[in-house]
């Protein structure tokens, strides 16, 4: 399984990760962080660990790992 780890408090809710995920694994979240943004939530089902979300994230809030046990 692949894992996209989102640093909850670094996120500024720009939506780039959601826009550029080719498999639609990321979607809008409903929990607010301490800076007042709603970071996205990740669903692992279709993730191919391409890293597009992490490369587009302007706030370096995303880490991507492949084949996590």
């Amino acid at each position: 399984m692949n894992l996209v780890k989102i640093n909850f408090d670094r996120c500024k809710e720009c939506g780039y990760c959601i826009k550029f995920c080719p498999k639609g694994c990321l979607s809008k979240g409903d929990k607010i962080n301490k800076r007042g943004y709603f970071p996205p939530v990740f669903a692992a089902e279709n993730c191919i660990a391409c890293g597009s979300c992490a490369r587009m994230c302007p706030d370096t809030a995303i880490s991507v790992y492949k084949d996590v046990e």
Binding site: Y16, A49, R55, D59, S63, V64, Y65, E69
Partner: peptide, 27 residues
């Protein structure tokens, strides 16, 4: 487990003062 992307090592933990979606953050 293989790391595809992680925060670069030279970066500190400081959160940038840029607005959400700013290109400065990406560059």
């Amino acid at each position: 487990m293989k790391t595809i992307y992680e925060k670069p090592q030279v970066f500190t933990d400081a959160i940038t003062t840029y607005c959400g979606g700013c290109g400065h953050g990406i560059v």
